[in-house]
Structures are given as C-alpha cells and as structure tokens.
Design a protein around this nucleic acid. Structure first.
Lengths: 354, 354
DNA sequence: CTGAAAGCGCTTACAG
DNA sequence: CTGAAAGCGCTTACAG
C-alpha cells in the first residue's frame, strides 16, 4: 500500500512485479554486478558462476529491462518509422522489408503515422522522446525542416521515396525515370503512337520522373509528345484514374494507350473505359505502375511496373544500420540508393486495333 | 574521449548530447527537482518559476527522456502490436485503427511481426523486455500459451480476430456467423438454389463461422446444403480461389453461385471462371468477404461483406485502455467485443440464368 | 574472478 | 514554494 503525490490516492499493488538482477543476486548470493556480467556472458565471470546464475535467472523467469539498459547505455536498439498511413498498399510492403531487417538485427520498431502531414509534429516528438536510435521516414510530405530538427537531436534519419527532390542525403528512391521509360517503350514497341500519361500532382518527384521517362522513350523512338495527352490528376486514387480516362475519351482524337502513374489509377481508368463500352486492351491499352497485389487479378490482368517495395524497405533499414555502425570519427557518410524494378507484361496492353 | 570495457576501444564523442533537467537546473539556478515539477506544471511550483523554467527548457531545446521517466514510473506508455505480416490487407487496416486511438491518447506503438508463427517467441520477448504497458495481438495463430506467459509478466493483452476459438477473454471478433448468413441469404434472395462455400482451412474459427452462417441461411430458407458444394482450400489466396472454382466447375452439376471466404479468393475464382469462358454474374454469381480496397475495382465489382476493419482496431485499442485505466482492486474484467459489418451489394452477384 | 560504487535522467515522499 | 535525497534497473571503470 502506498500513497501517491500525483493523484492523491492510496494504491494497492496487484500486478506482478518483474524479477530484477538484484533478486537474482540475492538468490545466487552474488553481487548484482556479477549477475549483470554473467547474464551477458562476460568473459571475466567464471564458467560455473555464469552457468549457475543463468539457470537461476531462467528459473525465476527473469526478463531483462530494456528500459534500464537503454538509460545506462544511451542506446535503445529501437528504430522508428513514420508512415503516412499504415494501410497504404505501397508503404505497408516497404514496412515489411524494414521490419525483417530490423528484427534480424534484434532491434525493435516504433511506428507512428504522420497522417499525411497532420501529425508530423506529434510523431517526430514522440520518437525523439523515446530516444530511438534512428528514424526511417516513409511519409512522403515530410520536409527538410524536420530532418534538421532530427539532426540537432543527433538522430540519424533515412528517407524512403520522399516526394521532395531537395533532400539528397541518406535517401532511398526508386528509379522512376527508368520505370517511366520502360512502360512507355513497351507501348511504343507494341505499335502505339498516341500514348497518354496520367500523372499524380500529389506524388511530386516520382510523378515528374515517370513523365520524364515517358518523354525520353518518345524522343528515343523519334516521336513527339502531344501535350494534350499529358494529364495530371490531383490524387492517386481509382477515382482519379476514371477522371483521366473520361477526359481523354472526350478528346477529338483520343489516345490508343494510357500509362497511369499507379495501379490504382490504371484500374480506375480501366473500369471507366469498360463502363463506356470500350475494350481493354482491344480499344485502349492501359498500363499502371507499382505492381500492387491485386493488379494481377483484375480483368484483364494489368501490365505494370514491379517496384521493389520490399527491397526498398530492406535497403532503407540497411542504410540506417550503416549509419549506426559507422564508428569512424567523421560524420556518417551521406548516400542515396536508387533501386530499379522491372516491367511486368500482363494482358492490359496489346497492339492497337488499326 | 573514453575507454570502453565492452569493445576495448577508445571512442570520441561526436553526437550531440541531449539536454537534461540538470542542465536546465544549472541554467535556471534551481534544483532539478523543481525543474522536473515545473516542466510538468505541478501546482506546487510558483507560476513565475514555472514559466521561466519552461522558457529556458524551450530555448535549450529540451526533449524529455521517456526512457528515464519509464524507468522511474514503471509505465512506458507504449502499446505493443504483433501482426503476422504488416502488409496484410486486413490487419494493416486494423493497425490504422489501433494507431489512431493509441496516438490520441499520446501513447506510442511498438510493432513486431510474428511472421505467421515463425517469430512468435522473438516478438513476445522483445515486447516484454521493452516493458510495454499492453499488447494487442493480431497474429492469428498465436495460442493460449503465449497469453499465459504475458499474464505471468503482468502484461495485459487483447486478441484481435484470433484464429483459435479457445481464447475467450479480452478479445475482439467480427461476427462471422452473421456475415456468412447475410451473404448466403443475399444469394438465396436473388434466386440461387445451388450455392457453394469455399472456406479457408488456415483461418480457423472465422472460416467455420462463415460456414455456419451459410448453413443457417439455408436452414432458414428451408434449403438443404449439398456437401459437395462445401469446399475448404488450404490458404486464403487468389490461387486458392481459382482452385476452388475449377473444382466446382468440374462437378457434374456445378453450383450457380459461390460464396468465398474472402475477397482475394473470390477474385481468384472470378478470374478462373472468366478464363474458362464463363460470365460473372451471368453464368455464376460470386461473392467475397472483407471489402478490401480493390474489390470495388475488379470487373465486375465484387459483392462482398464490409468488415469493419478500422473499427476492429479502434475497439481493440479502447479495450486495452480500459484494462490499463482500470484501477479497481479486482482483476481487470474480461470481455469480448463482437462487431458486425454489413453486406455490400455490387455487381458480381445477380439472379441465376435459368 | 568478484564486489562496491557511481551514474544514466528522471520522479516524488519528505523536510524545511 | 523549493531542495536534498533516494531510487527505478541496469552497466561498467576501478579496486581488490
């Protein structure tokens, strides 16, 4: 029974109190210093003592306190991750990649959602208070200002697929120029000459780079780009895809192929065309980008670009550990990793009708 | 410069050292006790002192250490969550619901992946070492043994949609009997009499309960269930759906409607039927379950059951906080929350052809 | 090989 | 209203 200043109430303890090294020390008739060392197999403790202490700890159900250890060592072995939304089909797969590498290294993961900018502050603050060893940012809108705050606190950070192009240190990107070029070249190779691109204004850099690849593929093939075929929706949803398709259908000379910023938009566009009585790929060829799980199961299966989402996550975590492991006196060396995916030809793109 | 026993090397400090309450105390010429109280707006500190100290803390860029606070208070304000796989389309949405409630209460989230049973031990161990205040388990296979281990450590746990039916305390389930009944009744109402159910052996309880609902709907309508229409695949993938559809197509008298355990299977089944030249919903009606994002964008849009995934997560978090807030002397009261979703009629189910 | 001591950054009962 | 002291559960330089 104890009295508490904070809530001015009397409390009765009911929860089991965890075993500490002191409890083990008492049981083993050793000092807690020796117990501490024995539990971590420190070479200066004799083999018998180590064995005996570990057995007792096991029997007593001892689980070390990472909290106490962290306070002493000033390392938490926790990596923080900030995402916009956990259920984002792209970033949730990236998270899997991060989690697996982090778990392999016996680190843990702190997760916070930035809610597309609404909770940036709160998320960062919570991470810094918890003294995470490093932060991986999968929140596309997070800006330089936040990174500076992290730098000031001595928290290394890695950016994954950030929308801003300005941040050029410790970042993982996907090669969107290459991807855009591959998709467009595929449509050109099939015989298309009137090819549209439907971008996503919210995506920033990655949409611009896919467009850049689209232009490069045209230039390579000696084709010029018709600017009325280059559209930009204000979101990356299926609804935006439908909007894009409708806009293009209304043109006096509509395209025969459409390259959408992402799969969701491509699927929305396909729906809209089919509702209007058009055949895909008979009348229009449609290609997406990302290779989300279900792109394989729509009808027709979507030709898309397989972004290495899981590998992006793995690389991000590895870059983080490189920063943490770096015990040279110099500042951690900055870096950018750019990964390439590959074209995934399925059935939504075919030669044009004529 | 300091020497380290562990790695027997000399280290040079390069990282910025965080500001502590002692630093603030020195700057403010106050004791660190007073600083501590002032920072938390303790009423016993004078208003001027509080204001002055908070200003100084702000100027010095102070960020409190949750690690130190946790050690002292033996509460971390961290909720752990274990999932099978982060990118799981069902649980990632549940996670969103958990995260939002947890963040609202200014708690943080620890996330670990159980990898479908492969890392159960490691995940639990990490959580207990970090002294999380409570654990929400979204790992379908996790058994009673683990909960007992948690109970012994005094860590309250909440189960979300666990596959085993044995665990009956502090769990959130979806009412799968009701859901299965609704879907089947819908098909019966459309005029179908030969209706198949394709279950998922890996899903355990939830698959059995959907089947139970299917049987109830038949009984209600005075129809008998044909046992050759009741199948069970060994996974919940699109491939399994295709397998189920093929198996049923091969029957001498195939069904006219198919209720699949989940959307992924329904989409796989639909693909298989369309590949075989059959029309959905002309020749076969197909319905799924879950309402995953893309079920609205397949062709035809899938009739499904809208599971309240986000709400499941919210409820789980709320139940956790109920357990934590409970300061009665009695053991936390156990509970089960069962949520109901609703039928979402789209276009993949229609009256049978004949 | 082992132990006593100090300290990581906080909170809080107790004394003034 | 403020401060000195103890302590949360560990790690580790130092002394024996």
């Amino acid at each position: 029974m104890l009295f508490c200043e904070q809530c001015t109430r009397v409390h009765y303890e009911v929860v089991p109190v965890p075993v500490t090294i002191k409890d083990i020390a008492r049981a083993a008739r050793m000092s807690h210093s020796t117990v501490s060392r024995a539990l971590r197999n420190h070479p200066s403790v004799s083999a018998e003592t180590t064995a005996r202490i570990q057995r007792i700890a096991e029997e007593m159900g001892y689980v070390p306190s990472a909290v106490a250890r962290s306070l002493k060592t000033s390392r938490t072995r926790v990596i923080g991750v900030i995402v916009n939304r956990i259920a984002d089909p792209f970033f949730s797969r990236v998270l899997d990649g991060i989690q697996d590498v982090v778990q392999d290294r016996t680190y843990s993961l702190f997760l916070a959602s930035a809610n597309y900018g609404l909770n940036d502050d709160q998320a960062i603050q919570a991470m810094v208070e918890r003294r995470i060893d490093g932060l991986i940012i999968c929140a596309t809108y997070m800006t330089r200002e936040y990174r500076e705050r992290l730098d000031r606190q001595g928290v290394p950070s890695v950016l994954v697929h950030n929308r801003s192009a300005e941040d050029a240190e410790n970042a993982i990107y996907h090669d969107d120029i290459f991807g855009g070029q591959q998709m467009t070249r595929h449509l050109i190779d099939l015989g298309h000459r009137r090819i549209a691109y439907l971008g996503n204004a919210h995506a920033g850099r990655s949409s611009h780079e896919r467009l850049q690849g689209y232009r490069m593929a045209h230039a390579e093939a000696g084709l010029s780009v018709r600017e009325d075929y280059v559209l930009e929706a204000n979101s990356g949803t299926a609804q935006s895809g439908a909007w894009g398709a409708s806009t293009l259908m209304a043109l006096s000379e509509p395209p025969t192929a459409l390259f959408c910023y992402n799969d969701l938009m491509a699927i929305g566009a396909m729906s809209a065309l089919q509702k209007a009585g058009l055949q895909v790929p008979g009348d229009w060829s449609i290609v997406g980008f990302d290779n989300i799980t279900l792109s394989a199961f729509v009808n027709p299966p979507l030709t898309t670009f397989d972004q290495p989402k899981y590998r992006l996550g793995q690389q991000a975590a590895r870059m983080m550990f490189d920063l943490l492991d770096d015990d040279s006196e110099a500042a951690p060396r900055p870096g950018i990793v750019i990964l390439r995916g590959s074209l995934l030809a399925r059935e939504s793109a075919a030669p044009p009708a004529e």
